[in-house]
Amino acid sequence: MSRATISGEPDAFLIDLTKCTGCRGCMVACKQWNQLPAEETDFFSGEGYQNPKEMSENTYTVIKFREFEKNGHSIFSFYKEMCMHCDDPACVSVCPVNAFHKTPEGPVIYDAKVCIGCRFCMIGCPFDVPKYEWSKKLPLVRKCDGCYSRIKADLKPACVTACPSAMEYGPRSQMVQIAEERLKRHPDHYINTIYGKDEAGGTSVLYLSSEPYEELRFPSVPERPLPSYTWPALRLVPGIFATVVTGLTALTLFNHRKERLERERNKEKEAEQQRTVQAEEDKS
């Protein structure tokens, strides 16, 4: 039995960036568990020791390095990028064939069998998570699946298991609670925000950080769930269709009725005329 079925709520990752050493054990563990090939890299592809540059079909999670100066101090920070496993995911909502699915356990998983490869999920995801198999002739989408098979086997995700210091995994409310406790205990250590608690309507990946999230180049994301931006329009679809169709039918019938009436009136008039003509003829 999986964990979520016991706790009754989705699990979440808590990634405390103040405790992340940028060791990248999580990245290697992810590749190992998912048997993803290494990417060809040249030197470094970003600040610090950044490599690969970003997530891709072969890289489901990446540590983003930032190095800069702030108030005369060096800042060297590490931020683990992965699928956020949104509570109300954009990828799930935009996919025309329901290839994505938010599981009760938390992970947002993907069904390659139904995917048609339209890449709308990539446009929709506010965190730019789904990646495409650009190297393939008939490409599919790839992304972190929260190690769903491990979760099903009552194991923690591979990256969490490998992480020496920064990650916790458990029921979301419990993770939020741990995060809030840390914020309360060490207010001077942290930016007073749990990234992911409300972002995109809440996600199953939560972050704590000592640096402002924008400085670490976290994507800026609305607090409303993304699907709530498209649904108001889509919700209207049946109504609009009905309105347009009935409106146009009515309009057509009306316009054509006038014409028909006119034609009939004309006919009548003609008949009348004929009759009068006839009558007059008869008279004469």
Binding site: C95, I116, K136
Partner: peptide, 24 residues
């Protein structure tokens, strides 16, 4: 031409997602 899985294009007609503008 653009789809990664053009042979599965017909899926749209069978795996409905009313929330997807693309489905629409």
């Amino acid at each position: 031409v653009d789809l990664g899985q053009p042979h599965k294009g017909w899926h749209v007609l069978f795996f409905w997602n009313l929330h997807s503008p693309m489905f629409e």
